[in-house]
Structure formats: C-alpha cells, structure tokens
C-alpha cells in the first residue's frame, strides 16, 4: 500500500512539475488594463507645489542647484508653452487616463498598451519583445517602454526619455533617467507604481505611486496647442543666479526650515528630517504664506 502511494506521489510530482514548467514557459494569466480611468487624488498627490518645495525628492546636489535656478517665467518661452507632462510625472497628474490596447490580428495577443492623458504625447508600452533602440536614437516625452508580466502584474521599463520635471517647480530628471513602473489591477482599482533612476539629478531612486478607479463615463479630450510670443526676448532665458532665488525664503518660512537647510534632497524623504524643522515658525509661516497664495 505504501509502495503504491509512493509511486502515485512520484507520478503526481512529475506531472505537477511538468505543468509548472509549461505554465512558466507560456504567457501567464494576463490582466486587462484597457479602459478609462480617473485618478484617485490624495493629500500626498496634489502636485500643486510651491516654488522651492522639493521636500521628499531625493535631489542630488546637481539636482538641487538646477531646481534652485529655476524661474517659473521660463514657461512663457514658446518652447515651453506646449510642453506636455512626461512619463516620469504624468501618472500623478489630475486628468483622466485612457489605456487602449493593440491586439495582433493573427495571434490575438496584446502587443502594446497605449496610455494617454489629457495633456500627453503618445506613450506606447510594447509587449512584443522588440529590442531597445540604440542610445543615439531620439528621446521623447513618453520614452521607449517595454513590458513583461510578473504574474498578473505588468512591469514596464522605460528609457529614451526627454529631460523633464518630476515636480512642477523645477525639480528635474535628466534625459538619462530610466523609469521602472508596475501596473497592478484589483477589480476597478489600478495602482501605478513608479521608480525613477537618474544618475544626474537624483541621489536615490524616486519611488512614488498613484491610484486610479475605472470609470466608464470619462473621456480624454484632445489638447491642441500652438506656441505664441509672450514678451520674452529670444536671448533671455529666465533663471535665478545661485543664492538669489527670492522664493526660497517663502517655502522655508512655511515649513519652518532653517536658512542653511536645503529644501529638498534625500534627507528630506525621511521622518527624522522633521526634527530639524521649527514648529513655531512653521505655523507662522503657514498663515503668512497662505495669505499670499
């Protein structure tokens, strides 16, 4: 009897092992991410920052210097008026998200997803195993994305991005940044996790996430845009010289940050940073700052 059980067990193990390998070799159970989604906003995802508020961003010394030089008047230059949100930022934006899927008519496999928001360029995510372009190929706001399945989670690797902001106040990721994203769907909720790696402007990976809810009534409107002259002469690029950004004192006042303390960087991501803040000044700063907002 024992011998029979032993033989049966061994046979089951063989079959199970074979099936597991076959399943691993074949396409896993795929989740359908297509549809219209609306973003679920939260306090941590307002993305309407004050100038100088780079807290929580792991900006390197170069990234901080770049951000401190940024002047919002730059956005009046023709080259910036129609600039869309890029891949490293747009998923935190406020607009609807539509994810379409490209299906191979023969194999009926999903070969690409096409996410789009209200103010974006095309951002295809390829699942057909195509190789990455050479490094000298052009970069785009959406970059070049390929995806693989991790169970029913889609892992997306993105390269060939343009230089772009990671917060809309001068915090930048360079055109050498890469992004790893995961799409996780639980029923009508889509979780979008993003990790930005940038050798130039980040000293640590930037990890953020966003939530979307499926919404059959949402639409993604078109976004035609043409640049116009807004009064800035061609030879003039708005920026602040080092140590002369007048807005940094406002953000320091708002949060009670000591004058010598940078308003961004890896240190500001962690709870210990709060001990450096002056609570009394924080509350005063908040009131005065809000009046001028």
């Amino acid at each position: 009897m024992l011998k029979t059980h032993f033989v049966r067990l061994a046979a089951i193990l063989i079959v199970a092992s074979f099936c597991a390998r076959e399943a691993a070799a074949q396409a896993p159970v795929q989740t359908d991410f297509s549809g219209e989604w609306v973003v679920v906003r939260s306090q941590d995802n307002s993305e309407n920052p004050w100038v100088g508020d780079w807290f929580g961003l792991p900006l390197s010394a170069a990234g901080l210097a770049r951000a401190e030089a940024w002047d919002a008047a730059l956005l009046s230059l023709p080259e910036y008026q129609c600039q869309p949100h890029g891949w490293a930022y747009i998923y935190r934006g406020p607009t609807q998200l539509r994810i379409s899927k490209d299906v191979d008519p023969s194999s009926r496999e999903v070969v690409a997803y096409q996410p789009e928001w209200h103010q974006t360029a095309n951002m295809p995510v390829y699942l057909d195993g195509r190789p990455s372009p050479i490094e000298e190929a052009a970069h785009s706001w959406g970059g070049f994305s390929t995806a693989t399945w991790e169970g029913d989670i889609l892992r997306i690797e993105t390269s060939h991005l343009k230089e772009d902001y990671i917060r809309r106040n001068g915090a930048m990721a360079s055109d050498e940044a890469t992004v790893t994203s995961w799409w996780i769907r639980r029923g009508d909720i889509l979780t979008w996790i993003s990790i930005v790696h940038d050798p130039n402007y980040l000293s640590e990976p930037l990890v953020r996430s966003s939530e979307y809810r499926l919404n059959v009534n949402s639409l993604v409107p078109p976004h035609p845009c043409t640049s116009v002259y807004e009064g800035l002469e061609k030879d003039h690029v708005p920026h602040h010289l080092a140590g002369e950004n007048p807005f940094l004192k406002d953000i320091r006042a708002r949060y009670g940050v000591p004058a010598e303390q940078a308003t961004g960087g890896p240190e500001t991501m962690y709870p210990e940073f709060q001990k450096k803040l002056h609570e009394a000044e924080w509350s005063m700063g908040t009131k005065s700052a809000l009046r001028g907002r």
């Binding site: 230059l77 490094e135 000298e136 706001w141 343009k162």
Partner: peptide, 11 residues
C-alpha cells in the same frame, strides 16, 4: 550624441 528635436534644442 543622440538625435534631437526642438525640445532638446531648447534645453
């Protein structure tokens, strides 16, 4: 270096 367009020129 790599191929570029107007946005890269602007930066």
């Amino acid at each position: 270096g790599r191929l570029a367009d107007s946005a890269d020129l602007a930066y």
